Simulated scan of single mutants.
Amino acid sequence: MNVTVVDHPLVQHKLAILRDKNTGSKDFRELMAEVSMLMAYEAMRDLELDPVTIETPLTRMEARMLSGKKLALVAILRAGLIMVDGILRLVPAARVGHIGLYRDPQTLNPVEYYAKLPEDIRGRRVFLTDPMLATAGSAVHAIQVLKNSGAQHIKLMSIIAAPEGIARVEREHPDVEVVVAAIDDHLNDHGYIVPGLGDAGDRIYGTK
Rank of each mutant, 00 (worst) to 15 (best):
K147D: 10
Q12N: 09
A93H: 15
M39C: 07
L187I: 01
D199M: 09
I160F: 00
R29A: 06
H190K: 15
F127K: 08
I183T: 02
R168L: 06
D184Q: 04
Y205K: 13
E42M: 14
H153D: 14
A136R: 03
K208E: 09
G191F: 08
Y102V: 07
A142I: 08
M132N: 04
L15W: 07
E30H: 13
V111G: 03
M65K: 15
E177I: 08
H8V: 10
M39R: 08
Y102R: 11
V178G: 00
A142T: 02
D120V: 01
L128Q: 03
L81M: 13
K155Y: 04
E172L: 12
N22H: 11
K147C: 09
G68P: 02
D20F: 05
E55A: 12
T59F: 12
P110Q: 08
G86I: 11
D199E: 08
V180G: 01
I121C: 02
A40S: 13
K26M: 05
K21G: 02
M32S: 01
L146K: 03
R64A: 11
T53H: 12
V140N: 05
R29H: 07
L197T: 00
G196A: 07
Q12A: 09
V52Y: 14
R64E: 14
T53V: 13
G198P: 09
A40Q: 05
P118M: 10
L58G: 06
G206L: 08
I76C: 04
K70E: 07
H13W: 11
L128W: 02
L133V: 02
V179Q: 01
P131R: 04
E112A: 06
S158P: 01
L81Y: 12
L81D: 08
R168Y: 02
R125Y: 10
V96S: 11
S138L: 03
G137H: 02
D50N: 14
L18N: 03
H186Y: 09
V6F: 02
A33Y: 09
L146Q: 03
P131A: 06
A134W: 02
L88V: 09
A200K: 06
Y205H: 15
K69N: 08
G201Q: 10
R171E: 13
R89T: 02
V52R: 13
P163M: 02
L71S: 01
L128Y: 03
I143S: 06
V194G: 10
R95K: 15
L146G: 00
I87M: 15
R64L: 13
P131D: 06
L49A: 06
V180S: 01
S158Q: 05
N109R: 15
G68H: 06
N148W: 02
V11E: 07
T129W: 10
V140G: 04
A93S: 15
E55G: 00
L187G: 01
E170R: 07
Q12S: 10
N109F: 11
G206R: 04
A167Q: 01
R125P: 01
P57T: 12
G68T: 05
A79T: 05
Y113V: 15
Q144D: 14
L73M: 12
R64I: 00
P110I: 07
D130E: 12
Y113W: 15
L156D: 01
V126P: 03
L90F: 07
I159E: 02
I183W: 00
V3Q: 00
